[in-house]
Simulated scan of single mutants.
Amino acid sequence: MEWLTGPFEVAFVQRALWSGMLVSLICALAGTWVVLRGMAFFGDAMSHGMLPGIALASLLGVDLLVGAAVSAAVMALGVGVVGRTPRLSQDTSIGLLFVGMLSLGVIIVSRSQSFAVDLTGFLFGEVLAVRPADLAHLGLAACAALLVSVRGHRSFVALAFDERKAHTLGLRPRLAHTALLCLLTLAIVASFHIVGTLLVFGLLIAPPAAVLPWARRIPVIMAGAAGLGMSATFFGLLLSWHLHTAAGATIAATALLQFALSTLAAALRDRLARSAPPAPATDHPHPEYGHPS
């Protein structure tokens, strides 16, 4: 048991575990809608598009969260503006802004030799350097994400499955879409310091995608995704401690491994269901249609 519990007796590993659990909760709330609406490319672009704001904030001595939030807001606003061009699809506008923001970030980084050394921490996170203040910020972000998810649940469901019906029901799909973008931005900005701008995408997408083949109801998907994210945090930190690997990358890799195992298990389940012999017919009356003819 020492192998299992020993690492978590250290204070900074405990803070890393708590921060990872809070990040898992936030990412589960936002990531479920990302998976259901097919917004994975947008989520990836958002996580990469924060680089210019982070770089500028670092060079100017401003809080990195502020720079990340401003950059993510610019990215989300830009996608909305460029996406209104009739001849450009949403994927095209996202791709153009993604390349533009990433290029701008690299240009800013290249202007400072000292900043290039710290780039790895911004890209891959510093989960083992979490401070108590960071936990407080994550707690507030988790409460805000939970509030937005509960208040906007009905609108988000209608938006995800039938946007025209959402408009007919008076659920204001454009406002719901804006709120969903805010939820996604909150998840990415709150999480990048823990697992990095590149690896936040793993916790945002992999746990909900792993639960999706096994659950029908959206709250169940969210709860399962949060549970998988928390377990990925625990085992990722454990493996990182014993194997001396990067903690953030190991957590993300564990989440992706969970997705791979879930996909294989679901494929095996479906194959067994197809190969199973059909159930024998009975003469019992059908509860709705009476005796079979």
Rank of each mutant, 00 (worst) to 15 (best):
F115S: 14
R172Y: 12
E2A: 13
P132D: 14
P208W: 01
F122T: 06
G43N: 06
A279I: 14
M46H: 06
G49K: 01
L135C: 07
L204W: 09
V220I: 04
L96S: 07
G290Y: 09
F12A: 03
T85I: 15
R216L: 14
I54W: 01
A265G: 03
G83N: 07
G202Q: 13
A28Y: 01
L119N: 09
A145N: 12
A176F: 04
M46S: 12
L22V: 14
A249V: 15
M230E: 11
A141I: 10
A28C: 06
A247T: 08
S89W: 05
V195I: 14
S293Y: 07
E9P: 02
G78Q: 13
R274G: 11
G31M: 11
R217H: 11
K165F: 13
S149Q: 15
L212V: 01
R271S: 06
L36D: 01
C143M: 15
S293D: 12
F124P: 05
L96I: 13
V148W: 05
V74G: 08
A16Y: 02
A215Q: 09
G290I: 06
G6V: 09
A266S: 10
A265E: 02
A273C: 12
P208A: 00
V211Y: 00
T92P: 02
G152F: 15
L204Y: 06
I107G: 01
H137L: 15
T197R: 07
G20D: 13
T254P: 03
P173G: 10
L184K: 06
V62Y: 05
G196F: 02
C143V: 15
P277S: 09
S71K: 07
S114D: 13
A176R: 04
P219R: 11
G100F: 04
L4N: 11
R216C: 07
A273N: 05
I205V: 14
L97Q: 12
D63V: 08
W241G: 05
G202S: 15
K165Q: 13
S114T: 15
V106R: 03
T263S: 10
V62D: 04
G290D: 08
A72V: 08
V130M: 10
V189N: 01
G67E: 00
V62W: 14
H137R: 13
A247C: 11
A265T: 05
V150E: 10
H286C: 13
V211D: 00
L123Q: 04
